[in-house]
Simulated scan of single mutants.
Amino acid sequence: MKNRTADHRERLDAHVLVCTNSREEYDCCADAGGAETLTAVKAWLRERDAFWSSVSVVETGCLGLCSEGGAAIAIQPRDEWYSDVQPEDVPALLESAFGPEADRVGNTTSQPADD
């Protein structure tokens, strides 16, 4: 076993966690477009040549924000949590976190978009 904590901390600035959890008895991200939202996150980063960057995209199980309105997303370590995210919401969400061209990927805190 290798402890790679230091290497990983140096390389990664943010983790975008996208829930695709499926449940039968309750609303869940799988039924609310979780897979499509995950695809939209990856596509947005790829379009800006930031997919294989210091942003990690992770498909997760339940983030505790289940609804029928869309998927749950968390951006860590920024401690930002979103629910009801639809694929068409992804550009605005990631733009606010990382900048229009993902030019703030290396920053550890998000900044509001310029008005």
Rank of each mutant, 00 (worst) to 15 (best):
M1L: 06
K2T: 13
N3E: 12
T5Q: 15
A6Y: 10
E10T: 13
R11T: 11
V16N: 03
V16Y: 05
V18N: 02
C19N: 08
T20R: 07
T20L: 12
S22R: 11
S22T: 12
R23Y: 05
E24L: 10
D27V: 09
G33T: 02
G34F: 02
A35K: 08
E36C: 00
T39G: 01
A40C: 00
V41W: 00
K42E: 14
R46G: 06
R48N: 06
W52G: 07
S54V: 11
S56D: 12
V57R: 03
V57F: 05
G61P: 08
G64F: 06
G64T: 04
G64L: 09
C66A: 07
S67C: 06
S67T: 15
G70K: 07
I75M: 13
R78E: 09
Y82S: 05
S83W: 11
D84G: 10
V85Q: 12
V85T: 13
P87K: 07
D89I: 08
D89T: 10
D89R: 05
V90Q: 03
L93A: 03
S96Y: 07
F98Q: 01
E101F: 04
A102L: 10
T108Q: 07
Q111N: 14
P112N: 11
A113I: 13
D115P: 14
D115L: 15
D115M: 09
